[in-house]
């Protein structure tokens, strides 16, 4: 039972199909590269010939030069490390605490009903509005920023995880009950394992939300971090600094997202065996 056929066994039609598929993949990649490189080149050229105001939009080469300076004196690493660390703390704690609360709600229907209006209000409220209060309460350092990041991600985590948990196939619950399973066993043997893919999705969303919390937190208080770089650049009208901050931020967020995607792939691959 092998899925992969040897080359010699492939029919002409199948070869053609694979070739077309490959062609399409390359053409998409080409356009992606073309558009981004084209955009940067156009920007650079327009800046060089002063078709646009470099004070407002800076230029790619200027941003890159700044990037090199920040790497050379090592300060960029410090800023990135702090922001990344805050984000990791934010989304992992937000996810873990959120799932724990979701488990409590799943466990007790009464608690779920009592807390329902509070969660609805918290969900509707833009959590960034709470950031100034949270920072005053938790402290103006890294704690305040992490708490902001957690607050932003925890409410959606609770609501979506709870929603996933209560929608586990009831017949499967009955199957476990027919063997005499306790509520805790239903949780560990059915509810959590059947929702691993959903939890990975929640983590993906939380990475984005935690970055929002971290950047907002850094805007408000910090002296380090990517958010600080951006807000400082804005205050002193160094738009190249702002743009470099945003670019670095985009790369960081993308790498984190890719890491989670990798974990998801490993998890999916685990479920298939070959005879």
């Amino acid at each position: 039972m092998t899925n992969k056929q040897k080359d010699t066994e492939k029919s002409e039609g199948y070869k053609h199909f694979l070739k077309e598929k490959q062609k399409k993949k390359y053409s998409i990649l080409f356009w992606q590269v073309f558009l981004s490189v084209g955009f940067i080149l156009l920007w650079e050229v327009m800046a060089a010939y002063e078709l646009v105001n470099t004070f407002l939009v800076s230029s790619p080469s200027q941003i890159f030069k700044l990037f090199i300076t920040y790497i050379a004196d090592g300060s960029l690493f410090k800023h990135v490390a702090i922001s990344v660390w805050e984000t990791i703390l934010g989304f992992s704690l937000g996810t873990i605490l959120g799932i724990m609360v979701a488990i409590i709600l799943w466990w007790s229907d009464t608690v779920a009903k009592v807390l329902d209006p509070i969660l609805v209000v918290l969900n509707a409220l833009p959590k960034t509005a709470l950031a100034p209060i949270l920072i005053v309460w938790a402290g103006a350092g890294i704690q305040g920023i992490v708490v902001t990041a957690i607050t932003i991600s925890i409410v959606t985590t609770i609501l979506s995880a709870y929603n996933y948990f209560i929608h586990v196939d009831e017949e499967k619950v009955k199957m476990l009950q027919s063997f005499g399973a306790s509520k805790a066993q239903i949780l560990t043997k059915l509810v959590l394992p059947s929702n691993v893919a959903n939890i990975i999705n929640i983590i993906k969303i939380n990475i984005g939300l935690s970055w929002v919390g971290v950047i907002v937190g850094e805007f408000l208080v910090s002296r380090y971090g990517i958010g600080y770089l951006i807000v400082y650049g804005g205050q002193v009208f160094r738009l190249d600094l702002v743009m470099m901050g945003v670019a670095v931020l985009a790369v960081c967020a993308f790498l984190m997202y890719t890491a989670v995607n990798g974990i998801e792939k490993i998890y999916r691959a685990k479920r298939v065996t070959k005879y």
């Binding site: 196939d169 017949e171 199957m175 043997k189 059915l190 059947s194 691993v196 479920r271």
Partner: peptide
């Protein structure tokens, strides 16, 4: 008593 259901209810991750 042992119960056999309409659908097999095998857990896909096991």
């Amino acid at each position: 008593i042992g119960y056999m259901f309409q659908r097999d209810h095998l857990l896909e991750w096991r």
